[in-house]
Structure formats: structure tokens, C-alpha cells
Design a protein around this nucleic acid. Structure first.
Lengths: 191, 191
DNA sequence: TGTTTTTCTTAAACTAGTTTATTTTTTTCA
DNA sequence: TGAAAAAAATAAACTAGTTTAAGAAAAACA
């Protein structure tokens, strides 16, 4: 029998109360526990009705590939975070991939919509995602790559450590070459 | 007595049914009809507990001012659209201003949260806003200013006509000088 | 309608970030 | 552990977009 305790804790936290056995059974029935290996693709641009992922352990990235074949990391998700394309069930434009070996609880859009009416905190979560993206958007628009790198380093040093540099540069909207320059400059300053 | 018919129609559309007189009275009691003149400020960065605005007529812009004093237009809102800072009631980082003389129905965050549970379509609206912002983010990150201008022209020609060029350039994340160049180049091509 | 103010254009010098290519360092894995 | 592959650093030439400035055009308004 698979271990859903992390998921139960999550719902107990957002519901601010213990779950009954019936509720636990309900949760087990709509979520699917899955594990993905490093670099394994979870969904692809063009896929319809993609699922939502609550991450137990590991690191995922959601990205696009532009006309010229270049990748842009839109979002990362790590343990105790949600990731997925909120545009679902419409055809997605994104790719979702594991950066590390990752274990998730996944749920279909329809089931997600259903539990949202029960756990209203899930809607607040979408709203928080919006606010996060808005901040990120403004930062990338109005600040230099150097400032944005500095900020990421402050806000989520863990992420910077777990990701290869070229994934970070793509998240910041610059080339790996340029991020390398920024880091070299920072190191030069420091001594 | 002020005319709330546009707002009633909106709720009848999203609720997919006629409103009762009681419901109409409820709506009138929580919304405030307001008019803003061209260039009038509606809220400022630093304000707390900003309101949500459903636009009856006119055009608003939400923007930031960066460290160096430069403005960046994050979003525009026109008739039959919502605009506001979803981060409310937390202190906002944004400015909201009327581009044209604009009439709105405004509502406080607490009342908004309350009617959201009754008209669940309002949550879907937040989700749609998220999807819109995500698309815009990806476009600005991965496409040239020229392509982004072209796209805006296709998706919302009306907006391009109603806004001064420098507001559009700021929305696209470039300087007015550069947008002017893009437009000049386009005109040169066309003949 | 003419004057003032605001917006747009053009030009030229500049810079943040890109591209391509090569070398070095780090990681992977047989 | 040693060879191969992946990631990062460095360099140099390049370009998309910025800055500053000045003039032209359009809009506002008295």
C-alpha cells in the first residue's frame, strides 16, 4: 500500500483539521502517486487534459520551447508545492520534466475542480500563484539579469544549488553564457 | 438612483440565470459605482486593502514604477473586464490609473471573497487571468519586441488605437523610441 | 484659431545581453 | 577509476534595445 501521509498532512493543514477515514479514502481514490526519473518527461506541449502535480519529493520544471528551439523555464516546483498547467483541459503549450528523481501525487482537472469546492484553500493557492508570477514578470521586465539572479539567490538559495546553471539562466531569461559572466563578476567583486 | 444594469447583466451571464430582486439589492449594497477622469489615480503603491474594479466603460492601466522612476504597464482593463491587485489586502506595489474617463463598479476584498463563494465563476476568472499573464510572460521572454507588437495588434487592435504609443511600449517592455522604430520599419515595409 | 503642451520621430552613440567557438571543469557511469 | 559526456568558463564579434537630445507632428485648450 502506498504512503499518502504527506498528502494527508497537506489537506489537514489547508483544511485546518484532521481528516476522517472516509475523506482519506476519497483522497486516495482521486490522486495517483507517481515517480519520475531525472530528465523524464511528464507531459509535452500539445497534450490535452494534463494533470496537476503536488510534489512529495524532488524537483520539476515547466518550460516552453520557442520557434527557434530554445527552452525557457517558466516555473520550478519542489517538495510541498503544486505544479501543472492551469490552462488544462485545453491543449498545453508547456513541457513538464523532472530535474531530479521526483515523487508526486497527481490529479486530473475534473477531480481537482471537484475537491476545490471542498477545500477552498486550493483556490487561494491559484491566487497566490498568480501573485508570484506577477512579481516575477515585473522583476524580469524592470530589473537587470544581475539583480534578478541576486534576488533568486536570496529568495531560494536551495533552488540555485539544486539546478544546473543553464536551467537558472533560462528561468531568468538570459543565456547560460551571460549568467556565467554575472557569476564570474560577482566572484571577482567578492575578493 | 445609479444604473447598475451592466453589473446585473454580468452576474446574470456568469450565473447563467436571472437575478432575483433580493440578489440585485445585495449586489448594489456591496458594489460602489465610481467615475474617474483621464489620468486620475485610483490607487497607489503602498496602499493597503485596495479594491477590485469591474469596468463599465473606459480604460484603466495598472503599472509599477521601478527604482529609476521608469513606469511599466503590467495590465490594461477596459469595458467588461476586471482589474485590480489580487495581492490585496496586502500592501500593493502597483498604481492604478484611468487612461480615459472611466466608470467602474468597485468592491472591497472582503465582499469580493464573499460573493466568490456564491458566483464560483469569479474564481475561474482569476484562473483565466493567470493563464493570460503566463502567456504574456512567455511571449515577452521568448519573442522580439517586434513580434510582440504584431501580436498585440492582432489580438487587441482596439487597445492599440486607444492607448498612446508610450503606454504600449511600456506594456511590451521596450522604450518609446524603440517602438517608434518598429512602427517606422513596418510602414517602410508596407510600401 | 493660435498657442501651449504632449506625443512621436529621427539620429547617433552606447550597453546589456547574444552568438559561435574553444577550452576547462565537473559529473556520469561502465 | 578512467573514459566519455555534460556543464561551465572565457573570448570576441555582434545585435536588439537604450539613452540623450533635438526637431516635427498632433492634441489640448483658452
Amino acid at each position: 500500500m502506498e504512503d499518502f501521509s504527506v498528502l494527508f498532512s497537506y489537506f489537514e493543514k489547508i483544511g485546518n483539521r484532521k481528516l476522517t477515514d472516509t475523506e482519506k479514502a476519497e483522497i486516495v481514490s482521486v490522486f495517483r502517486k507517481e515517480t519520475f526519473n531525472k530528465k523524464q518527461r511528464i507531459f509535452n506541449a500539445g497534450d490535452e487534459n494534463t494533470r496537476h502535480y503536488y510534489i512529495e519529493k524532488g524537483l520539476l520544471r515547466m518550460y516552453i520551447i520557442d520557434q527557434s528551439g530554445k527552452e525557457f523555464n517558466l516555473l520550478f516546483g519542489k517538495e510541498r508545492q503544486w505544479l501543472g498547467d492551469l490552462g488544462t483541459p485545453a491543449t498545453t503549450s508547456y513541457y513538464l520534466e523532472a530535474v531530479e528523481k521526483t515523487t508526486v501525487f497527481s490529479i486530473s482537472e475534473s477531480a481537482f475542480a471537484a475537491i476545490m469546492s471542498k477545500y477552498t484553500e486550493l483556490s487561494s493557492n491559484i491566487r497566490r500563484s498568480y501573485i508570484f508570477l506577477q512579481k516575477r514578470f515585473v522583476a524580469i521586465l524592470s530589473k537587470t539579469a544581475e539583480e534578478n539572479y541576486e534576488e533568486l539567490l536570496n529568495n531560494d538559495p536551495d533552488l540555485v544549488q539544486r539546478l544546473p546553471q543553464y536551467h537558472i539562466s533560462s528561468y531568468l531569461g538570459v543565456t547560460p553564457v551571460f549568467l556565467s559572466k554575472i557569476i564570474a563578476k560577482k566572484a571577482r567583486k567578492r575578493d
